[in-house]
């Protein structure tokens, strides 16, 4: 089994923390993981992409090929569409609907979201709204993990254990808020 995920968003959105939750959960489950990150100039407010590979056997390389990803997981709707070339035929695009408009020529949002209907398989998530409902706007990344969770080869319990580990230092209240956010994301299937 190999499960390849392209994670994307805009520099500063916490794409790496999103990757960290899934990667940690996968490792807790005893799976092999390779996760490539973006640092340096590429990171400053621009389009960022990370490759996360999960498998039950050693993984040969750090990069996912074009038309090979099982999932594109996007923190931002424009960035999600940018990486559809990585999706394999039955791959899914899971994206947050909240735009980051730091460029002058950002498309009309409704038109942009409308383009998703051309994809064979996608899930759009109101991650910001769900995070606020869960009690903390800072939990958007965990909402997205929840939204992706039913497709991942990682058990929900392992993902939650990873969330607990990552937020351990910040107290029980924040852990609970993140669990709520996860559940809200997981229940967002429409």
């Amino acid at each position: 089994m190999t499960y390849d995920i392209i994670l994307t968003g805009v520099g500063g959105q916490g794409v790496l923390s999103l990757a960290a939750v899934i990667a940690t959960g996968a490792m807790k489950q005893g799976l092999e993981v390779r996760q490539s990150e973006v640092h340096g100039m590429a990171q400053r407010g621009g389009s960022v992409v990370a490759h996360l590979r999960i498998a039950d056997a050693p993984i040969p390389g750090d990069l996912i090929g074009k038309a090979s990803a099982d999932m594109v997981l996007a923190m931002e709707p424009l960035e999600g569409l940018r990486y559809t070339g990585y999706l394999k035929k039955n791959g899914i695009l899971v994206a947050s609907t909240a735009p980051v408009r730091n460029i002058p020529d950002y498309p009309d949002l409704d038109e942009l979201l409308g383009r998703y209907t051309k994809l064979p398989s996608y899930r759009l998530v109101d991650a910001e709204g769900l995070a606020k409902q869960a009690g903390s706007a800072k939990t958007v990344n965990v909402v997205m993990v929840g939204a992706a969770s039913s497709f991942l080869p990682v058990q929900e319990a392992m993902l939650k254990e990873a969330i607990r580990g990552l937020f351990q230092a910040k107290g029980e209240q924040l852990i609970e808020a993140n669990f709520k956010a996860f559940d809200a994301g997981a229940g967002s299937a429409s």
Binding site: G11, Q43, E79, L81, T84, N102, I103, Y106, P107
Partner: peptide, 11 residues
């Protein structure tokens, strides 16, 4: 899914 505007890194 059509053409997309680029998003280069910025200050």
């Amino acid at each position: 899914t059509g053409a997309l505007p680029g998003r280069p890194p910025q200050l």
